[in-house]
Computed example of a mutant assay.
Amino acid sequence: MSSDLSDLLVPELIVVGMPAASKKALFAQIGALVAPVLGVEARGVSEGLAAREKDGSTGFGGGVAIPHARVAGLPRIAVAIARLAQPIDFGSVDDAPVDVVVAMFSPPQAGGLHLKALARVARRLRDRALVAKLRGAGSPDAIYALLSDHGVRDAA
């Protein structure tokens, strides 16, 4: 099975050095980032992430979190990536603070597609060598290249 996530990634939603002091602040910033690009309400994104987080931490371990939400108005499943300026407490399974956040958004009716996409993302992020490379990536293009089979995007 391919490890390519380019069908889920939205290059404009990859951020290096995002400042966030808490999960709440992070979710608000992700909402503000995602809303204009995906054409949804920022509040709906941040509230969706916060509501899912109340069911249990999406802190995946190893400094990685995969917060996810179903958001009305989305045409497809989309992923945003934020490498944080400073790690924050996420209530992760291993109690490690999080500095790599891979947020996934699905239309409400995505059902099984949401779960399959979430499993693909989680499978990729179990690779500790990949996560180390994500931490060292100096740009959004470098992060995109690490998570796709296509290498760095064409500038054309």
Results as ranks from 00 to 15, higher is better:
G44Q: 06
G59M: 00
D94R: 09
A20D: 02
S2L: 14
R135S: 11
D55F: 11
K24I: 04
G59I: 04
Q86R: 11
H68V: 10
R124E: 08
A51E: 06
L74Y: 05
A69N: 03
A129H: 10
A142C: 09
V34L: 02
S148Y: 08
A51Y: 01
A50P: 02
G39T: 04
H114D: 02
R83K: 12
H150G: 12
P107H: 11
M18N: 07
A32G: 08
R124T: 06
G136S: 12
R128L: 14
A42Y: 08
P108W: 03
M104A: 14
R153E: 12
A103V: 15
S139Q: 06
R83V: 14
L130K: 01
D154L: 13
A69C: 05
A69Y: 04
P108N: 01
H114V: 00
F90T: 03
V15I: 15
P108E: 01
R135W: 14
L146R: 09
A20Y: 10
V121D: 09
G61H: 09
P67Q: 01
V100Y: 10
S46Y: 13
L118Q: 01
S2P: 12
D95K: 09
R124A: 12
A35V: 08
S139K: 11
S22I: 06
I14G: 10
V79G: 02
L13G: 13
A28W: 10
F27R: 05
A80C: 02
V152W: 10
D127A: 06
H68A: 04
G151H: 08
V101E: 03
L146Q: 08
A69P: 02
A78W: 08
V79I: 14
V37I: 05
K24M: 01
E47H: 05
D89F: 15
T58M: 00
I77N: 04
L38I: 05
S46A: 08
G136A: 15
P11Q: 06
A28H: 13
P108D: 00
V152M: 12
L33W: 14
L125I: 15
F27W: 13
F27M: 06
A122G: 13
F27G: 09
R128A: 15
V45Q: 00
A51P: 01
A32N: 05
K133Q: 13
I143F: 11
M1T: 15
L125Q: 11
G62I: 09
A119W: 12
I81G: 04
L146A: 06
L38M: 08
A25N: 02
V102F: 15
V98L: 08
I77S: 10
F90E: 00
G112N: 05
P75M: 03
R120K: 10
L13C: 14
S46L: 04
D89I: 11
A25P: 00
G31K: 03
S139E: 04
L147C: 14
A78L: 05
A80N: 01
L5Q: 02
L5A: 02
L84W: 13
D95W: 03
V152S: 14
I66Y: 08
E12T: 14
A155M: 06
F90S: 00
L134A: 07
M18S: 10
R52W: 12
G31C: 09
A122E: 02
R83N: 04
A85L: 14
P67C: 00
A72T: 05
